[in-house]
Simulated assay, not measured.
Amino acid sequence: MLITPSVIFLLLFTLYPIARVFWMSLHQISVTQPWLGTPFVGLDNYKEVFQDTRFWHSTWFTLAFALITVVFEIVIGLFLAIIANKTFPFRGLVRAAILFPWVLPTVTNALTWRWMFNSDYGLFNGMLMEFGWIDKPINWLGDSNLAFVAVCTVAIWKTSSFMAIIILGGLQSIPNDIYEAANIDGANRLQSFFLLTLPLLRNVIMVALVLRTMHALQAFDLMFGLTQGGPGNTTESLPMYIHNIAFIDMEWGYGSALGVILFILIFAISAIYVKFLYDPD
């Protein structure tokens, strides 16, 4: 009786939407052609997905984006957390500064960085030309490779602080006695870091990796605000492609199939993390 409200909440707002999307993925549903009804097509939508070159490109882009950003974010976040865990004047102010990029809305971040990357009046081109490092402005968001670098840079700048806050909580839970004992035994700082700090942070890092990877695989607002998926859909993430199919082209059946595949992809990667990183002891 006590858990009934929670169970009802999960059924209505979690399990039912998932089941509904899966049901829709087995039907042809076109909002622009309502006279066609919702005929059952079985796995035809999924067959079409795997023959869709735009799907494969958006998937590979999403995976590459998640891999690169998560690796850099965990390294930078660990570095920032170690600094924030030290005792020094104005430590609270430094911690607030570390958290600042994360609390800003992603769209606000994207638009701000878009102005800085602007080829005509952007900050980066202005600085590079002022120092004489370039002769003419660089079209940062008009080149597919540079646009990818720009998207990853903004994501790393924003989310490294999120990693830092999670890891900082783990660092503060480690007793200082352990380091004192290691110091007495002759361990230097580098040995203490690799033999004590990292193993004790294993579960914390796993949680940070799972949360951030799930967030990176669902990235939409950053690409939408920074590049609009361009140039030529080269920075279009899989969630952005799903949005375009479902809410621009109004193909709900095919869009649902894409959503189911994204759900399976995120679930599989999260399961791999838990399998190899989670330590119940």
Results as ranks from 00 to 15, higher is better:
residue 163 M to W: 03
residue 2 L to W: 09
residue 73 E to Y: 05
residue 138 I to N: 07
residue 233 N to V: 08
residue 247 F to P: 04
residue 129 M to C: 10
residue 42 G to C: 09
residue 132 G to R: 06
residue 36 L to A: 14
residue 47 K to M: 11
residue 87 T to A: 13
residue 222 L to Y: 08
residue 260 V to T: 10
residue 91 R to G: 10
residue 124 F to L: 15
residue 232 G to Y: 06
residue 55 F to Q: 08
residue 258 L to E: 02
residue 250 M to T: 08
residue 117 F to W: 13
residue 85 N to V: 01
residue 206 M to C: 15
residue 54 R to L: 11
residue 251 E to Q: 13
residue 106 T to Q: 13
residue 200 L to F: 12
residue 145 N to V: 11
residue 277 L to T: 00
residue 197 T to E: 11
residue 265 L to N: 04
residue 144 S to Y: 03
residue 170 G to R: 07
residue 243 H to T: 02
residue 175 P to C: 01
residue 19 A to F: 15
residue 278 Y to E: 02
residue 138 I to G: 04
residue 53 T to C: 00
residue 1 M to C: 05
residue 13 F to K: 07
residue 25 S to G: 04
residue 42 G to Q: 10
residue 273 Y to S: 05
residue 279 D to R: 12
residue 6 S to T: 10
residue 193 F to A: 06
residue 85 N to E: 07
residue 7 V to H: 09
residue 226 L to Q: 02
residue 83 I to Q: 08
residue 164 A to T: 03
residue 164 A to P: 00
residue 126 G to A: 12
residue 271 A to P: 01
residue 14 T to R: 00
residue 76 I to G: 04
residue 83 I to Y: 07
residue 27 H to F: 06
residue 77 G to Y: 05
residue 137 P to Y: 06
residue 182 A to L: 08
residue 226 L to F: 11
residue 239 P to F: 05
residue 251 E to N: 12
residue 274 V to S: 03
residue 206 M to G: 14
residue 200 L to V: 01
residue 204 V to S: 13
residue 109 N to D: 06
residue 167 I to R: 02
residue 229 G to P: 00
residue 272 I to D: 00
residue 138 I to Y: 07
residue 1 M to N: 11
residue 212 R to L: 00
residue 209 L to F: 14
residue 218 Q to D: 11
residue 53 T to Y: 03
residue 118 N to Q: 12
residue 18 I to V: 14
residue 250 M to H: 12
residue 253 G to V: 05
residue 222 L to M: 14
residue 203 N to C: 10
residue 260 V to N: 09
residue 157 W to N: 10
residue 271 A to R: 08
residue 233 N to I: 05
residue 140 W to V: 06
residue 114 R to H: 10
residue 3 I to C: 03
residue 153 T to I: 03
residue 23 W to E: 14
residue 37 G to A: 02
residue 217 L to E: 04
residue 55 F to Y: 14
residue 239 P to Y: 06
residue 129 M to V: 07
residue 219 A to G: 07
residue 20 R to Q: 13
residue 214 M to I: 11
residue 250 M to Y: 11
residue 153 T to M: 11
residue 230 G to E: 11
